[in-house]
Nucleic acid binder design. Sequence first.
DNA 1: GCAAGGTC
Length: 959
Amino acid sequence: MIKVLNVAEKPSVAKSVATILSRNQLRVRDGRSRYNKIFEFNYSINGQQCHMLVTSVTGHLMEVEFEDRFRKWHSCDPADLYTAPVRKYVPEDKLDIKRTLEEEARRCHWLVLWLDCDREGENIAFEVMEVCKGVNRNLTIRRARFSALIERDIHEAAQNLIAPNQWFSDAVDARQEIDLRIGASFTRFQTMLLRDRFVIDSAQDDRNLVLSYGPCQFPTLGFVVERYWEIQSHEPEEFWTINCTHRSDEGLASFSWMRGHLFDYTSSVILYEMCVEEPTATVTKVQQQEKLKYPPYPLSTIELEKRASRYFRMSSEQTMKVAEDLYQAGFISYPRTETDSFSSRTDLHTIVQEHQEHPVWGSYAQRLLDPGAGLWRNPSNGGHDDKAHPPIHPTKFSAGESRWSQDHHVVHFLILVSTCAWQSFFSFWSNLVIMALNEFLKFSYSHFLQRLYELVVRHFLACVSQPAVGAETVVEIDIAGERFSASGRVILAKNYLDVYRFESWGDSMIPTHVQGQQFIPATLTLDSGVTRPPPLLSEADLLSCMDKAGIGTDATMHDHIKKLLDRFYVTKDANTRFSPTNLGEALVMGYDDMGYELWKPNLRSLMEYDMKEVSVGNKSKAEVLATCLQQMKACFLDAKVNKVKLLEAMAIFFNRSDRSNGDDSSALGENVRPCGLCQEANMVLKKNRDGNFMVGCSGFPQCRNAVWLPGPVLEATITNNICNSCTPGPVYLIQFKFRQLEIPPGFNVNHLGCIGGCDETLRQLIEICGTGSRVQARGRPPTTTPSNGPPTTTPSNPQRSNSRQAPCIYCYQTGHASTDCPSRISATRHVQSHGMNQQNGESSIPCSTCGTPCVLRTANTANNRGRKFYSCSSQACNFFVWEDSLNNGSAPRSAPRQNISSSASNPSRRGGRGRGVQNAGRAGDVTFVSATGEPISGRRCFVCGDPSHFANACPSRGS
DNA sequence: GCAAGGTC
């Protein structure tokens, strides 16, 4: 009889395969590893009688590592790690499994590999082959390919054995080697570069701190930082919208403007006035239709993690731990699966039947099985199948509640561990306190088990249920050519929502309307709101980002998130939302400033693409390894050359350490000109701790003379060229490089500029972009204050000093609302009282922010070419106001507006209607119309306040 | 001391 050694990827699969093939007629014995049993039985393969031994590994049997002489961190230059020899070996904790395989393989004729049918599984198959062939060269080796652990598939796989796929395995070999080389080189490089140079306050002992870099963890960090910067750089923008209500016997209907909202106040007012003048509403459309809300797809790992985070605020790591325990105890199926569709051969009814007796959802399960109820529906297909595991579903009934804490060994194990730990650390505590804590732990953990089990069961029952049905009514009306709509919904059948309590679908009544009907609105208001930034990334958002970009696998995503927390790169708040720490932000900022996208997902995506090419035979492993490692080594060497960028970014957030040898000071600090204020020292080029460039007197703090440079400056280098016109000289010209995306169209990225006052380009850029837009976009107040800080003669940009508080949208000051902005009043007042000569550059109007005289200038940007504005003559002050906005009395603006914006298509403009009620008053007193259509009181022009006309006819606006 | 991928 042929002896066949069968090896599965994990003990559970070995058990399932053996049970199915033997029809449960098998013997079990121990191997050398306590987890990996050996099952024995007889079975016929293609008519050949076989004695089957089925055992398992636990995932990868081998690891890839550098040879010993490269393993110490100081043993070599990290750049050498791109070429240092690596080896694959069986680590200490897997030697038991290796010995079992060797012992059994010696006695067998065939080796059949039952590893998971994905690339990693194929690679593990080759690891198993290597070990087995090492002791028995005559083995016949075959691969079993199965798509689910169900009877038909497993028997089919056993009768149709194939050859292992070398390409699949090669792809994984390449990935492992690339991950190791990139990860180890960058981790050693940035740890050794930064750890001793800065006081990194997040770490208890920063001498042992590891600043790891990994091709998965860094893009994950990148997602968190990018969202954080997006929030920091968000500029609130005020918008206006018209709302209207209609009261009838059946109740109140609220109509919203089908334009959404406009960002232009005057346009909004004109449209609003047209509505007020002819307020009769005509119903143009009444549409009624049936709407379905579908149940979710069957549950994959990522969906389980996302939903547990959303519904229970469990971290993905917690979820996977609890799911693993539920799986080990037999309550749910294998929890690491990409599959979100059930095989047609899965017996779904039997799973539902098991739950008929449940005290809470049992009656729902009964209704599902009752053909007369019509509740059953075959689950939809989510389109993913890992060919190894079914979607996560319940496999054993539990009534839950009190039984969890009694019958689950995990809880007892945890309690044991915790008791030992607490007793050893806090031996002075009374037993009573320890018991109380244990009870709490027992309760919390059983609570998690219970909630996750409930989610898996309810999700499964929802999947096999009919969608919820609603009747939706949409009513559209027309007022003076403007269209408004309102909608209502009545739930006709809740169906799956009866069991899936985590989702809701609200009823909202709308009174009956008929086409052609006319009415006078109960209210017609012009409301305003401001755009708001998107929220910080939640754990579910982060998982979605990773999933979409292909960062990590279903089984490892939670590990990458946990790694960021462990490395102090990010923190998570009570709402499961992530913010970068100073450390995380500084690292991303450093690489960003180098111009590398090492913190973006593209690198991993490219690697994944190459792996795919290897796995289908289009490229060889050697070819991909060579090109990828060559590129990464070049990138690494470049990063070493540009390490000053990392140091500068770190310096923004952290104090230099005493251990620092100080050899990395930036090349800044050269003289630009003699200081005209103190006439003693020189002005020098500096980059301050917020990352902004400035030229300050080296006599600081005695002399506080300073010239701030535009926010978009990326690089600034002093040249030998001298300005011909500025005094006192010599004033050396500076070669600037601006960040392309931050300067308006029409400006060059490269600019040879003078800080002496003659440079129109610099002046315009400061007026338009400010001196700290980069920091507004990414910075936060530093936690420490270096002793050699830059001069601060002038008020710094208020947004910089209080970046988390929403500033006024007109003057960027905090402490007052935009509606109460003093700059709007003072700017107008100044123009009137000083009788200004409106010629370019001639004015004595004091700036309303700092008191320095303003000058009248002409904009030269694409959007506003030729438009005039007043700006403060102090280069350190950002104040400016458009001339035309003063003339017509509307608000001064700091940036060009877009007249009409689609809030749905532009995420930066998502926003609420924060101040609708207060701002209704800005539309004059005409916020209500009477039943006869006459405005109640106080009609007047919204621009100049004259009651004799409306704004669209206001003489101050001209034609 | 470093990666990411399996798994108990």
